[in-house]
Design a protein around this nucleic acid. Structure first.
Lengths: 255, 255
DNA sequence: TCTCCTTATTACTCCGACATATTACAGGAA
DNA sequence: TTCCTGTAATATGTCGGAGTAATAAGGAGA
């Protein structure tokens, strides 16, 4: 029994079944299809208004069952990317119907070459929301919040942003701030944007090793929040976002 | 051929098949199921951590096929409400995983009795985002934007907020502002929140006929944007949101 | 020219079977 | 006893096909 269990893998003649190989453990087939189609749409491979080939044809082309294909389409529909009606087919919706702030949609947007204008938009939104979040955090934080932030900050100092552990600590720090706002909507929003912006951190690291030491800026934010000074916290966070934007912008235009 | 084509409709013994009747034209069956389950989760009928009965059992209980049920689950999964794994079943995710800013999730949240704290959170977010959007709009608007806003404002004056046409004009006015920001992310976010907040407008109208004349506040925002005065636009919009919050709050606590 | 109806196409729903992944348990070794 | 390993049970995942319902497009009639 040395024969391969999966005849699709390896030397299969066509490019069909490509969606199957892109799925690791814990990733279902329909998830892989949704990812494939989602990135294709976000990258502009399918333009708004375009009609996808029929269920039977497309499922056959991908070499998957109609069930799996349909479930993938439901996911895209749920995120506002496509809409399907009998007799009319499945068509890509205009961009203003897309849920651009959905975490998965953001991931698809950053899977390929991210659109420069869109990155600018995200940073603009971040520059609006994050300082305000820091202000609220300064007004509402308790001892536990401060402790979490202090621990995360210490971890950031130990490992740098060059390591995965360091970036995790950075996320922890910002998450602790969001938790302190006691606002679920703000948390959902900022978590999405933060994750997306962190994709760009890879670009920054790729461009130049360590642009600048981010610790002092973080410390300023922490001190203001710990002191309960909302205005100072917003100010310091504004600086932090501004610097991140500059680094990212220079890293993206440099290529 | 007078016999009923749908034996489920009418005098069916159990409450099964209820999901079928809730679907009008253009609404598919799996969409109705997703709506049913979504509202059930958002209303707290299923708590985070709860596991739903198996696919076969639940689909049978709802009197729908497994396919339809599964597609509905994919929708909920796409919005971060549930997660399903083989052998473990489908369980409701913790609230911080929910995409609370998804338009459909917001609709589900406001389908029943909306959570007071959540409404407060949304208004807080709105108070952060909308003034900033007005500032950007004041800086970037062109003649077409101004014309659209003026038209919408005139329509608001003609019909009042008591009529559907008036509320549509209100939405048009705010959408025109968002368009003028030239920021897709901001547009997506604000459109979601705005729609959700408009659900609460019904509450306001129900509570007392016409709390106050909203036109002067809108005019102030319009004038500032037309004049290109960002600071004034942000200030005026801040007042607008503040007043809306007061009206909504008094309407909700009054009940 | 416009309205209404017919028709063809497409997505939608259902069914039953099999494959796969993951948990839980039992057995054995340290 | 405790930990690890292998095995079996179970629920989700995937598949293929058949039939239904809804809608857009085209044709008949006014």
């Amino acid at each position: 029994m040395v024969e391969e269990k999966r005849p699709l893998k390896g030397a299969d003649g066509g490019e069909g079944g490509a969606a199957r190989e892109a799925r690791g453990p814990g990733r279902r087939l329909h998830g892989a299809i949704a990812h494939k189609l989602g990135t294709a749409i976000l990258s502009g491979q399918y333009a708004p208004g375009d009609v996808l080939s029929g269920e039977v044809a497309f499922a056959e082309e991908l070499e998957v069952s109609r069930s799996a294909y349909r479930e993938a389409i439901q996911v895209l529909t749920a995120k506002g990317l496509v809409e399907s009606r009998p007799k009319a087919g499945t068509r890509v919706l205009p961009r203003n119907r897309w849920n651009l702030l959905d975490p998965e949609v953001l991931a698809w947007a950053f899977a390929g070459e991210p659109d420069v204008q869109f990155v600018r938009d995200l940073f603009e939104l971040r520059a609006i929301v994050e300082p305000a979040a820091a202000r609220l955090a300064a007004q509402r934080r308790d001892k536990d919040d401060i402790r979490l932030m202090r621990d995360a900050l210490a971890a950031m100092r130990r490992h740098t942003l060059a390591t995965e552990a360091g970036r995790a600590a950075d996320r922890d720090f910002h998450n602790a701030i969001l938790n302190a706002t006691r606002n679920d909507a703000l948390q959902t929003l900022s978590a999405s944007i933060g994750a997306a912006v962190n994709w760009t951190t890879q670009f920054k690291q790729r461009a130049r090793a360590l642009p600048r030491n981010p610790i002092p800026d973080h410390v300023r934010v922490f001190d203001a929040i710990a002191a309960g000074d909302g205005a100072a916290a917003a100010e310091a966070m504004g600086v932090l976002v501004e610097l991140a934007l500059e680094d990212t912008a220079s890293a993206m235009t440099r290529r």
